[in-house]
Write a protein that binds this DNA or RNA. Structure first.
Lengths: 261, 261
DNA sequence: AACGGTGTTTGGCAATGCAAAACAATAATA
DNA sequence: TATTATTGTTTTGCATTGCCAAACACCGTT
């Protein structure tokens, strides 16, 4: 894991920063953590963690399991998360089109945006087939290893692309992940020309995705949509049709947002 | 607004507590706030707020609008919110049944649980009619003024009921809100006997709801579901059918959770 | 050009957060 | 069952750190 060292700009409050560290140490795999456990993970003293944890528990951001004494994330975070979501009217606008895209392709469809140099999945609708891609809303991924990520990556300024590659690196996820900076930059250029991106098992083996950008009234790329499915099913002649659907729907959403391309 | 003064137990970190105050000051109505604005709301010094805000911005919990200079909640909160949600497998289990309940009744259906003496809406599915109740997932409400809240309220211990009434009070939302403690307690008793609750314009005028409890394997009430719609439509003979549907579905979900009533 | 309003930076005092150690209560060991 | 290890929790005191105040820089309005 390449820890990006934040350059602290302006005044900085240590205890708050640590509190956020604590919140983030609760992953999807480790839902419940103890005081000592967290203190080990973060390299902080037990009593320090306890104080922070206690403060957040009093506010409902953390809850303690009475029987085990361990802690987990509280519903207050769910509440705030929903407030953020609510302010994203993008989700409302795209909902209808995403459903259409799912119906057309039968596969899992996604809506994602970029946030602090990463892809964040905002919405998804699962495919109709029994074997389908299962992903999760709210998840973050690096930009370089998915169709949706590469689309968002491609439309950035050249120096930002450079900067992100340098800072984040290009983590190898599968044998086919593009880990060479110059190859990636070629790929991104090509994506801009074609107007869509394909992920051919670059993030997970057997998974193929097609993604296209969403533009707004000022012609900026503000989000992207994708269709994801098993290689076997997509590759067998379906790819072209999926590509057309993705392009058509992304265009429709962009139109709705006032894009005039 | 009756501010519940938290009795600070154990060690307490002031700056973290204040940081959470800041997060919560971003409501659904005021999505964007400035430093000065927040400092006024919370009664803190401008530079104090700035430092806290800055710390959270560096971590993606707050984002600044570059043009206006104002702040709003960041996507990191959405991400954490999703992690909490993910740990709630209750939502997954009920999804199918909620959809069924919506189809049967044609009205907006809800799933909610209790958290720190309040109702939290975990999931909803909007009604099929053009005029329908619009609510929001993640929202918190007091326990006494909705069908779903009263159900969750009813199955608590007598002393907890007493405690919550004393601490939170019974805020009047409409002319029909039950604000008399002894009347409410009678109502709660009745709900336990009948096994369902009705909200007859107690939270909003023209809104009628029917709710029933969800029980788990140890026969505890862990959640509740409800159907909500306009009084005109529900009252006109439909109430009985809605009530039956709610009871039937809540029973089905409870069965799924291992309830043996 | 002066004003009122932002967000931001700086400096210095002391309040506050934090580490160390002791405590209590449970779980795992023999 | 006695013993050890490991948990969450409380207390204490030192100095780090957070916070207030005031000044700064910027913008839009008057």
């Amino acid at each position: 894991m390449s820890e990006t060292v934040n350059v602290r700009r302006g005044s900085f409050v240590q205890s708050v920063d640590r509190a956020l560290d604590i919140l983030e140490s609760f992953g999807v795999d480790n839902k419940e953590l103890g005081v000592t456990e967290i203190s080990r993970i973060l390299g902080l003293h037990k009593s320090t963690v306890y104080g922070l944890l206690n403060t957040m528990e009093n506010r409902g951001y953390i809850v303690q399991n009475p029987s085990s004494g361990k802690y987990r994330l509280g519903l207050k975070l769910f509440e705030l998360g929903c407030r953020v979501e609510k302010s994203m009217d993008l989700k409302k606008i795209t909902d209808y089109y995403l459903e259409m895209l799912r119906q057309e392709t039968g596969e899992t469809v996604h809506l994602a945006i970029m946030d602090s140099q990463e892809v964040v999945y905002i919405d998804k609708k699962e495919g109709l087939e029994s074997m389908r891609m299962v992903s999760q809303v709210g998840k973050r991924l690096p930009l370089h290893c998915s169709a949706i990520g590469k689309v968002l990556f491609a439309y950035l300024d050249q120096d930002r692309i450079e900067k992100i590659i340098n800072e984040k690196g290009l983590l190898k996820m599968t044998a086919k992940t593009i880990t060479d900076p110059s190859l990636l930059k070629e790929e991104l250029d090509e994506i801009k020309v074609k107007g869509y991106a394909i992920d051919n098992e670059e993030i997970a083996e057997g998974l193929v995705c097609v993604a296209a950008p969403i533009r707004n009234y000022s012609n900026e790329v503000i989000a992207a949509i994708s269709v994801a499915g098993p290689k076997a099913r997509i590759d067998s002649g379906k790819l072209e049709a999926v590509k057309e659907s993705v392009l058509q729907i992304s265009q429709a959403i962009s139109d709705k947002l006032g894009y005039s391309g």
